[in-house]
Design a protein around this nucleic acid. Sequence first.
RNA 1: GGCGGCGUAGCCAAGCGGCCCAAGGCGAUGGUUUGCAAAACCAUUAUUCGUGGGUUCGAAUCCCACCGCCGCCUCCA
Length: 474
Amino acid sequence: MKLYNTLTHKVEEFVPMQQGKVGIYSCGPTVYSHPHIGNFRSFLVADLLKRFFEFKGFSVTHIMNITDVGHLVDDADEGADKLEETARKQKKDPLEIAKFYTESFMQASKLLNIKPSDKYPKATEHISEMIDMVKKLIDKGYAYVVGHNVYYDVMKFANYGQLSGNTLEDVNAGARIEINQEKKNPQDFALWKHDPKHLQQWDSPWGRGFPGWHIECSAMSSKYLGAEFDIHTGGEDNIFPHHECEIAQSEAASGKKFVHYWLHTRFLLFDGEKMSKSKGNLYTIPELIEKGVRKNAIRYALISSHYRQNYNFTFDGLKAAEQAIDKMQQCVLQLKDIQKSSKAGEICQQIKDLSSNCLAQFDEALSDDLNISKALAVCFDFIREVNKAEDMNLSEASALLETISKIDSVLGVLESTDEEVPENIIELAEKRKTAKLNKDWKTADAVRAEISAQGWLLEDTPGGGYRIKRGENT
RNA sequence: GGCGGCGUAGCCAAGCGGCCCAAGGCGAUGGUUUGCAAAACCAUUAUUCGUGGGUUCGAAUCCCACCGCCGCCUCCA
């Protein structure tokens, strides 16, 4: 398994800390608004990674934080917290806001078939762990107190800038922030902030206040995965300053290496443009579904291109994704038909080879830094071969279905095909069958149109049978 | 200004020194099949990889220059 490590700027062989196990920490949502498709690309990459590790037989511990405090709206560590701003606008308690949007996030995650993390720790529930870490950093001389504020002294951490490639001087040169006179260096960042206007406040050794933005991930990751762990994921925007600061905090506090592999997902574009509130292209999952987009097509689209590549999200792309999924789904339907109509028997060598080659190549593709395009190509080559195979018995069909199921345990795009076909649709289908036997084509076509109007698609199968599935005849 | 990425067919996208007259998906066209469809299958759809040089026996792949696009540099996945 090879992964691109942002820390070393190289594709590296993944070596787990413990044989057969992998710990993954993913930067989750900040719950002050509905998460949008951009957020979900990053979460889906984490999901794909995790599912693939499981496919390979790893035991995965996956932690995704919920940030319900601490992100400042404007520069210079001043001003309102985003959560607080929403809370003030909606005249609600910040925790109420957080709860509402956490629920929104969970629902959308479910729609996208994202496997739940082992734990979704919330920042507000880990204040004491953060305070402990800040204390430790002060004790070790990496942090200093000014009044009721605590800052991290970046000059003390030699590797600061290792992840992002930023040097302290460069950060300084490009800085858009106003110099905070309290800090020893402009690049120093807050570990604990004092602001009487803030709605969310906790007691600390430095007075009432709230934690800095970066400390939560350091504190929570070490609590649930240990001070040193395998993989940390996030969006590319997290590289600097968030993850850079996490490294500085965690490594200074523990004296250990923090994260072995850093994975960053590149931003999504929408119709070739950056997504932003002002452009109005920050679609949420429910919004897309309301527009008639199928949820598994959203998932497919978002995972179907490489995570280190900007993916241009378009409605045409979603259409293509739907078609691609239908192609897979159709193959499953045909195999299920064979299961129903044939008897068990020997599995011929050709089918065995087809399955094992497919799984091996699929594994190989994703093992190469999650080369999803290659992996999908393997799937479609496999499907073509399956569709070409003739005279299959039940055992062979089952074996091939098993293979598809293994693949979809990673992709997660196939829908259950077990939806009950309504009685009246079956009656219509039977009516058409009779009409066809009588060569009454007019009636047959009319009935098929009627079935289509009700949202079902009737397909004839060889030998006079039929198959009913969701969809419409065009 | 600093750091980083990208430019491959109508669209999406893999390939990163010879297996490439370049995978796969979507779309399109023709064919097989079908009462007609749908689905499936077959064939065609880039002799060429932003442009110009160079290295090499050999380059989409390495180097240089240029053009264009994008991201990050304390709000952001």
